[in-house]
């Protein structure tokens, strides 16, 4: 036997002993589990980062978001427009140094397609307090189908460094409870 500092001489390509083989086999089996879980979760799981992805220019995305705000605005909070889009619609959230626009008012149990992009540098979408994180990259539209499963107020913290005002960049999502959802959708044409 020799240490790792010494040059082995002769043929060192020898069969492994039982314990080594056992451990390599178990470790490999575990690695297969690690792999299998990812496709499995795409098939059975409820949280996947796939989304609908497109390239988009900053101007086009900003314009689309503005149209979205103009159509569904219901108020304003801290100088940021509040929008209440219809159930199941495409909704837009734009990151810019250093704010998230608009404030979204959503309904529990309803699916939306949330489009994320940035008009300047990279930003990070972090939904507080449930800890959902996505990278927001300028030039790309990340359309995620999201279904809020609980009502309440959520904040969007920027978690990608975006310059000196990074810590100012907090947005907001309000999710109305399911009972109200029934009332609203019931009353809608």
């Amino acid at each position: 036997m020799h240490t790792g500092l010494e040059s082995p001489t002769g043929v060192w390509w020898k069969p492994a002993h039982r314990t080594e083989k056992l451990w390599v086999a178990i470790a490999f089996g575990w690695c297969m589990v690690l792999f299998a879980m990812m496709p499995l979760w795409h098939w059975k799981g409820g949280q996947n980062p796939t989304g609908i992805r497109h390239r988009v220019t900053a101007e086009a995305f900003a314009q689309r978001t503005q149209e979205f705000i103009d159509t569904y605005q219901v108020g304003e909070e801290a100088g940021i427009p509040v929008v209440e889009p219809p159930a199941g619609s495409d909704i837009y959230l734009v990151g810019a140094m250093w704010s998230w626009r608009p404030v979204l008012r959503l309904r529990q149990g309803v699916q939306y397609t949330l489009h994320l992009s940035s008009v300047d540098v990279n930003h990070g979408f972090n939904l507080y307090p449930i800890n959902v994180n996505f990278q927001v990259v300028p030039g790309y539209d990340y359309g995620l189908r999201v279904t809020p499963t609980a009502a309440g107020e959520f904040q969007i913290v920027c978690n990608e460094f975006c310059g000196i005002g990074h810590h100012l960049m907090v947005g907001k999502v309000i999710v109305l409870p399911a009972e109200q959802t029934a009332a609203v959708t019931g009353g809608a044409p």
Partner: peptide
């Protein structure tokens, strides 16, 4: 490893539905 790994899958399952 196994415990930590599957606890994280469990934590993930509590989130909103995202796809």
């Amino acid at each position: 490893f196994v415990v930590y790994y599957f606890v994280n899958w469990k934590l993930l399952s509590f989130l909103w539905r995202i796809g």
